[in-house]
Amino acid sequence: MQVSTTSFSNNFLYQIGQLQSQQTTLQGEASSGLSVTLPEDNPGVMNQVLNLQSEASSGAQYQNNIAQIQTSADSASDALNNLQSLVEQAGEIATESNGVDSSTQLSSYASQVGELINQALQIANTQNSQGNYIFGGTANGSAPFSATTDASGNVAAVTYSGNASVAESEIAPGLTVSAQSPGENNTGSGPEGVFADSRTGADLFSHLIALQQDLQSGNTTAISSTDAPNLTKDEDNVVTQISGNAVLQSTLTTAGNITQQQVTSENSQMSNDTSANMAQTLTQLSQTQTAYQAALESGTMIMGLSLMEFLS
C-alpha cells in the first residue's frame, strides 16, 4: 500500500490530537480529584449526585430545625420545671394550712400564694430566644396571660389571649414536632394546655386564686376539700408536660443522630461517585504523556526523512 505524504501528516495530527484530548481529561481529573464534573461525563452519576446533594442539603436543614427546636424545648423545659416547683409550693401551703386557726398565719400563707401567682404569671409569659411567647400557642406575638387585680392589689383573674394551637416543624421527612404548648386548651381536643386543660381539670391560675381567697377568708375546709385536690391536678398536668418535653428532647436527639448519619452517608456517596481513582488517573496520565512524547519524537523524525534527503 502506498503511503502518501499527506496521509502520514494527517494520521500524525489525528493521533497527537487524541493523545492531547486524553491528557487534558486526565490532567483535569488529577487536578480536581473528580472523575465526573459535567453531566456529559457520566449522566447517571450526575443524576445521583444532584439527588444526593438535595437530600444532604435537606438533611442539613433538618439539623438546623432540630437545633432551633432544641433551643425552644430547653426554654420550655426550664419554665415547666420552675412551674412544677411553684405548684409543689402551693400544694405544701394548702397542706400546711390545714388545721391552722391563726388568721395571721393564714394571711401570711395568702401572701405567699399571691407571690406564687405572680411568679406563675411570669413563667406563663416566658419568651424564647426569638422573642416568641412559648405558652401562647400560635398566637405567640404578645404576652398570652394578663391579670386583673382587685382593690387590694391581689390578682383576681387571669385571662388567656393565646390559642390552643401549636406550630410544628419538620425534623425528618414526614416527621413533625413542636416545642410549643398552649397555655390553655379548654376545647377538649388538641395539645394539652400547660396552665389549664378541660380534659385534666387543670386550671392553675383559678386554683391558686381560689386558694389565696380561701386562705384570706380562713375557709380551711374548702382548702383541704377543693383547693388541694385541684392543685394536685395542676401538678399532674405540669408533670405530664415535663414528660412530654423529655420525650421531645429524646426525639430530637435521636432524629439529629439519624440525620447526621444520613448526611454523612450521602456526602460519602457523593465523594465515592465523583472522586477520581488517583493512582489509576496518574498512571494513565503518565502513560499518555509517554505516548504523546513518543508520537512527537517519532513523528518529527519520520517527517524529516524522505528519499529526497538522501538524493540531495
Binding site: Q61, Y62, N132, N140
Partner: peptide, 15 residues
C-alpha cells in the same frame, strides 16, 4: 425549600 423549612421554625412577628 430549606428557606421554607427555616421559616417554619419561627414565623413570629419578631426580628
Amino acid at each position: 425549600f430549606n428557606s421554607f423549612q427555616s421559616l417554619s421554625t419561627n414565623t413570629g412577628d419578631n426580628p
